[in-house]
Deep mutational scan, measured.
Amino acid sequence: QKPIVRVFLPNKQRTVVPARCGVTVRDSLKKALMMRGLIPECCAVYRIQDGEKKPIGWDTDISWLTGEELHVEVLE
């Protein structure tokens, strides 16, 4: 079983991306966001920890988040 990260996107959409070492959250999600007309710069990404949303940086190595759920939200 490959290491993955589940990602909840705006508009009730979601995707799953591989959690590859040395790849940033930005690079992992860029294609999924672009297909939906979004760019990382207009969004914020969060991980859910103890039921709370914790913001994470787009430059975080995605392999550190293996098995986690991330939420991407459009910044107002």
Rank of each mutant, 00 (worst) to 15 (best):
P55L: 13
K2M: 07
Q49G: 10
E76A: 07
P40S: 14
A32F: 04
T60Q: 07
Q49L: 11
D61C: 04
R26W: 14
R26P: 00
L33P: 03
L65I: 09
T66A: 12
C43W: 03
K53H: 10
L75S: 08
P40T: 14
G37L: 03
K12Q: 13
Q13W: 03
C43I: 04
V7R: 00
V16T: 11
L9S: 00
A32I: 08
M34Y: 08
V5R: 00
E69Q: 08
T60V: 10
R14H: 13
L33R: 02
E41S: 11
R20F: 12
W58K: 02
C21E: 15
V74R: 13
G67Q: 07
D27G: 08
D59L: 07
L65F: 14
R47G: 12
R26G: 14
I48M: 13
R36I: 05
V5D: 00
D27S: 09
K12W: 06
P40N: 10
C21L: 15
I48V: 14
D27P: 00
G67P: 03
L33F: 15
P40L: 15
A19P: 04
K30Q: 05
I62S: 08
V72S: 01
S28C: 02
G22T: 03
W58E: 04
R20Q: 12
I62H: 01
P40W: 14
L9E: 00
C21N: 13
Q1A: 07
V16P: 01
P40Y: 14
R47W: 07
K53P: 07
E41F: 02
V17H: 01
S63H: 09
C43E: 01
V45K: 00
W58V: 03
V45H: 00
G57N: 07
T60W: 02
V72F: 01
L38Y: 11
E76V: 06
K12P: 00
V16L: 03
R26L: 15
K53I: 04
V17G: 00
K12A: 13
K30R: 09
K2T: 03
K30A: 06
V72R: 00
L38N: 10
T66Y: 04
C21P: 09
G51R: 09
G22S: 06
W64H: 14
D27F: 08
R20H: 10
V45F: 13
R36T: 09
L33H: 02
Q13R: 03
F8Y: 13
T60D: 08
R6N: 05
V25L: 13
K2V: 07
D27E: 09
P40A: 13
G57H: 05
E69R: 05
L75A: 15
K31Y: 03
Q1I: 15
V45S: 06
V23G: 05
R6W: 03
L65Y: 06
R47P: 01
V16N: 06
D27C: 10
V5E: 00
V7E: 00
H71A: 09
G37H: 10
N11A: 07
K53N: 04
I62C: 09
T66R: 09
V25R: 00
L38T: 06
V5S: 01
A19C: 07
F8R: 08
T24D: 05
V72T: 03
G67E: 08
E68K: 13
A44L: 12
V17L: 06
L75V: 13
L65G: 04
P18A: 13
P3S: 15
D59W: 04
M35N: 15
Q49D: 11
L29D: 00
E69F: 03
K54I: 08
G22C: 06
I56T: 10
L70C: 07
K31S: 06
M35T: 13
E41A: 12
R47Y: 05
C21Q: 15
K31H: 10
C42Q: 15
V5T: 03
V23T: 11
R14N: 14
A19K: 06
Q1D: 15
I48Q: 13
V45A: 14
G22I: 01
A32K: 13
I62K: 00
Q13P: 01
K54V: 12
C42W: 03
I62G: 03
W58F: 11
R6F: 03
